[in-house]
Write a protein that binds this DNA or RNA. Structure first.
Length: 115
DNA sequence: CAGGTGACTCTTT
DNA sequence: GAAAGAGCCACCT
């Protein structure tokens, strides 16, 4: 059967993005722009967002480690859905990621810089 | 091929 | 700091 046919289709389209997300260490975060760049698609931050949005949970992807860039090396949960956003924040806090009072994440501390 | 959409990002008001 | 505009890429119809 092919109940995962759709998931396979998506994994095929955004495989490059998912491969990078898998390498994000626990307690670290990455911006969509950085994800796109590391995935070999510089400037495709929007596509990276689409990849996270369609990411099948069956892949066990740490999508919560991908956030949006706010300003001055600060990240911020960019999920439109308030429920999903709260879940992402909770997941990140569980990994040791701290949020500022303004709801931002200091990328200089929790941002992942691949060698 | 053209138009619409989006978990983006930057600049300007 | 919020809101609006513009630029960007990838996917779908």
């Amino acid at each position: 059967m092919s109940e995962d046919s759709e998931a396979e289709h998506i994994a095929k389209l955004y495989g490059d993005f998912y491969d990078v997300v898998r390498r994000i260490p626990k307690g670290r975060v990455l911006t969509y722009g950085q994800l796109a760049e590391l995935a070999g698609r510089p400037g495709a931050a929007r596509a990276a967002g689409a990849a996270m949005r369609c990411a099948p949970e069956t892949l066990g992807l740490p999508w919560q480690r991908v956030i949006g860039k706010k300003s001055k090396g600060q990240g911020r949960v960019s999920i439109h859905d308030p429920i999903g956003g709260a879940i992402q924040r909770q997941l990140l806090e569980s990994e040791g990621v701290e949020f500022t009072e303004a709801g931002g994440v200091p990328l200089g501390v929790f941002g992942w810089l691949p060698e």
